[in-house]
């Protein structure tokens, strides 16, 4: 029994030490291998992604600031208007301009249009003829959105939004890599366009053979349109800056 105990102790400690060091080495090797996976391109991508994220956070902060200031203006406007009849007409004018400028949320009847990339046909086309497959032909581009919005405006739409971005006078539709920028915010498909206006006239314009919506529909894109009695459009989250343009005096 005593010798058994001795042999037991004899191998335990060295083996423990060896196993301890083996474990340590193993983990270190695994870690360094995982670290060596990251190549410069991926590192650069990570940096860029981080940059975008911080910028977006900054934008969100500034937008919160803008909406707070806007509330402040509204409040002071209300208090200043109390009891002053002369200002009432101006106030209603301002309210209308607020809708045009997108400073307030807008609600009313209109159309809800959905545009999406044509993934089904894209896959089929790629399977059929990979050499001549052009993925661009099956995506919704910035210009498609712009044309649809333009058609809606021509049909008398009073307020328009794309996804969560209100379309205002300064709104741009821009292609940025594989996303579309609207109000310098990245959008992803499906694109939901809400337009407040005369439903009949809007629908008629969309149904015209040369309308962008109709062209997309005929090209096989999964697009849809539905009437809604009560749409709610978000307010424009950005701000207008005028550094060069000034109103002409006397007009």
């Amino acid at each position: 029994m005593k010798t058994g105990r001795q042999t037991f102790n004899k191998w335990q400690l060295p083996l423990t030490l060896v196993l301890f060091l083996s474990g340590l080495l193993l983990v270190m090797a695994l870690r360094s291998l995982a670290a060596s996976d990251s190549n410069p391109t991926r590192l650069q991508n990570d940096n860029l992604v981080n940059l975008i994220k911080t910028q977006e956070r900054e934008i969100a902060g500034i937008q919160a600031d803008i909406s707070a200031r806007r509330n402040l203006i509204n409040n002071s406007r209300l208090t200043s208007a109390s009891g002053k009849q002369a200002l009432v007409s101006l106030q209603s004018q301002i309210q209308q301009l607020d809708i045009v400028a997108g400073y307030t949320e807008a609600k009313g009847p209109g159309l809800l249009i959905s545009l999406d990339d044509n993934r089904k046909d894209a896959e089929a086309a790629q399977a059929r003829n990979p050499a001549q497959f052009k993925p661009d032909d099956f995506l919704i581009h910035d210009r498609n959105l712009l044309y649809v919005v333009n058609d809606l405006r021509a049909a008398g739409a009073e307020a328009i939004s794309v996804n969560d971005q209100r379309v205002v006078a300064s709104t741009e539709f821009r292609c940025a890599g594989n996303t579309i920028l609207v109000n310098t915010t990245r959008l992803a498909p499906p694109y939901i366009i809400r337009a407040i206006g005369n439903q009949n006239s809007l629908t008629r314009t969309l149904d015209l053979p040369e309308s962008e919506f109709n062209i997309l529909k005929m090209s096989g894109f999964p697009v849809s349109v539905e009437s809604s009695p009560a749409l709610l459009l978000p307010a424009y989250k950005g701000s207008y800056q005028f550094s060069f343009a000034t109103p002409k005096a006397g007009s």
């Binding site: 030490l17 474990g23 340590l24 983990v27 360094s32 060596s36």
Partner: peptide, 23 residues
């Protein structure tokens, strides 16, 4: 005891996170 040693080695290795260059 040896198994404990192995686990301890893995644990300390993970906790210390000694940076080893990829090369």
């Amino acid at each position: 005891l040896p198994i404990l040693g192995l686990l301890l080695g893995i644990g300390i290795g993970s906790a210390l996170a000694i940076p080893i260059p990829g090369i």
